[in-house]
Computed example of a mutant assay.
Amino acid sequence: MTTENKGIVQRALAGLIETGDVDTLASFLSDDFLHHRSDSTTSTKVEWLAAVQAALGPTAGMQVEILHLLADTDHVVVHSRRWLPDAGPEIVVVDVLRVADGLIAEGWEIIEPVAQAAANGTWWEPDQQSKTETRVRW
């Protein structure tokens, strides 16, 4: 099942990355697909595909490099680097996709601008914790 789910995600992303065409991607999404972002917003299939088209479509020109594609049972994790051809900000993205009945049913996305990676990588250090008002509690 893990290998099959990884293959589903690979096929879904291949056409999108190569051509910017969201139609192939759409065919791999369930009708009730939901996409979640770290800012607590959730998009429907139609809303998310429109956002993907705007970012990755032929006129937008965003470049995507998949760095890792990992699968475990019904979840597939995609770690990618993305940038605009006109030297726009480079970002690193982690997508966690849940596959059900041969279709991508749900996705979660975490985005980090590469320029902020060093600063975001030190929040847990003792000298940084004393500078913040909010602490993470486990």
Rank of each mutant, 00 (worst) to 15 (best):
H79W: 08
L84R: 01
D95Y: 03
D74S: 10
E47H: 15
L97C: 07
A115Y: 01
R37Y: 15
E112F: 08
A71Q: 05
R11S: 08
A51Y: 15
P113M: 01
T132F: 10
T122P: 03
V94D: 06
S38K: 12
P126W: 03
T44A: 00
T42I: 15
M62N: 01
V78M: 02
A60R: 13
D86Y: 08
I110T: 13
P126K: 01
L29S: 06
G15L: 00
S40M: 09
T2H: 09
W123R: 14
I91N: 08
R98P: 03
E133C: 12
S30H: 02
L67T: 13
V99D: 03
Q116A: 13
T44I: 02
G61K: 02
V22E: 02
P113A: 03
G20Q: 04
W138Q: 08
S38E: 14
A51E: 14
I104T: 02
E109W: 10
G107I: 00
D31S: 11
R37D: 11
L103P: 01
I91L: 06
N5I: 06
T134P: 10
L84T: 05
V78D: 03
Q10C: 01
E18F: 03
N5H: 05
T3N: 14
A50E: 09
S43H: 09
T59M: 12
E90G: 11
H75S: 11
R135N: 12
E112D: 15
F33R: 04
P85R: 05
L56R: 03
D21K: 07
E112L: 09
L29W: 02
G15Y: 06
A100T: 13
V64N: 05
P85N: 04
K6F: 03
I66D: 00
D39V: 13
Q129F: 02
V22G: 00
A55F: 11
T132A: 11
L25S: 06
